[in-house]
Amino acid sequence: MLKQFVHDNLVFLDKEYKDFEDVLSHVMKTLINENYAEKDFEEALLIREKEFPTGLQLDGYAVAIPHGGSQYVKQDFISMVTLKNPIFMNRMDNPEESLAIDILFIIGFGKSDTHLQCLKQLMGLIQDPKVIEDLRKGTSIMSVL
């Protein structure tokens, strides 16, 4: 089910970015060019991340799932970014604490309710250390879906 939202052109592997703003500004180019989101999606996500961060502390590693700005989403998508060096982002359930993030899933969903199964599948994926390790090594996300 996730396959319909994760597209090869939205998968960015082993990239070097200095912070989330940097990650997003690069991903935005594709999102705009390929008609996934409007320009304002970028600011909406930055504001949202600042007010309500999306870093998740999992069992021994951390992942961020930036999302929001649903009104600027034109086609639903999930973009995956793996990083050569981790960036620091704040923790969702404790915004005072920062986490070293080395994989991000940027989620653009116009409406959430219809995508419950898809989000659950993504969370299942994120919780599996083996899957995360494989993704970081460059295994195609399509092959683990």
Partner: peptide, 14 residues
């Protein structure tokens, strides 16, 4: 409730 009321609250609510 979650930050945007979109993703994590949907999963948690379920």
């Amino acid at each position: 409730a979650c930050g945007s009321g979109v993703a994590t609250s949907t999963i948690a609510a379920d």
